[in-house]
Design a protein around this nucleic acid. Structure first.
Lengths: 133, 133
DNA sequence: CCGTCCCCTACTAAAATTGTAGACTTATAC
DNA sequence: GTATAAGTCTACAATTTTAGTAGGGGACGG
């Protein structure tokens, strides 16, 4: 797993929204300024999060985004997977994003990388936005 | 950390050499065929490994490559770092490859990713080629 | 009906990844 | 001492991924 700026921005935006849940809807530009994210890029990211039901939104004046589910129901694992795919170090040990890779037949190596995969998944699955605000 | 095919091939080649240490020097083509690696690509990889002192070589007939140090002195961490850089999930928590990234100021996130970094580094630093042959 | 804000797609520039090509060098066998 | 079997080295190319930008459209509030 390697975080791209997409997923880092996504996490920052979600954290912002989790911290400002009381305020209701927040505009893209507000988040963009607060977290120093290129606004049009953030727009795409939020749209992706919305389609995946992590956010809800409304248009028009006073529109904006808010969390689509409780902060404790959104895990880091889900967010990272949405933007960066596999949490595993190589796709041949990935559960959700399996693909063939050269080391596939090296059982000993596979075991090591599965251990890492398991640690990372467990860790990120057990941490929600609520744990971080 | 995300393994590229470069580092996967490097690991395969090193394992092959570790398993055939008795045979002395082994040619690129022999390794390439045994491990199904594009030969000219492997050539580059072995050269990099050699420059980093993990391999030694000699030219000419009956030339080839062999491990440059004992198999138990070559850790997976070193090999992966050589080809793929940081073991950490994002460079802002990397010790050897630090760079600024967007989530930098989110202390809570940083803590999580440092935990992952530590697990991965310890794991890969404690496993050598010798452990896998 | 006007401004504000989300929706959506297409596009682009840069970087990384995954190789290929070919000329050069060195050691060994004969 | 020459042919040959290797490694050495650099440059290049194709593809994919990443990190954005651009801009028109649609909905909602006032």
């Amino acid at each position: 797993m390697k975080l791209t700026s997409r997923s880092e921005y996504a996490l920052l935006a979600l954290l912002y929204l989790a911290r400002h849940e009381a305020q209701g809807l927040v505009s893209v530009d507000t988040i963009a300024k607060a977290q120093a994210i290129p606004p049009k890029f953030l727009e795409q990211i939020l749209l992706t999060l919305k389609r995946a039901r992590y956010l809800k939104s409304s248009k028009g004046q006073h529109g904006g985004y808010a969390l689509g589910k409780p902060a404790d129901k959104i895990s880091l694992a889900e967010v990272v997977r949405l933007f960066d795919g596999a949490l595993a170090p190589t796709e041949s040990v990935s559960v959700y994003f399996f693909e063939h890779t050269p080391i596939e037949k090296e059982k000993n190596l596979i075991r090591v990388f599965k251990d890492i995969r398991d640690y990372v998944s467990r860790k990120l699955e057990n941490i929600s936005l609520a744990d971080l605000v």
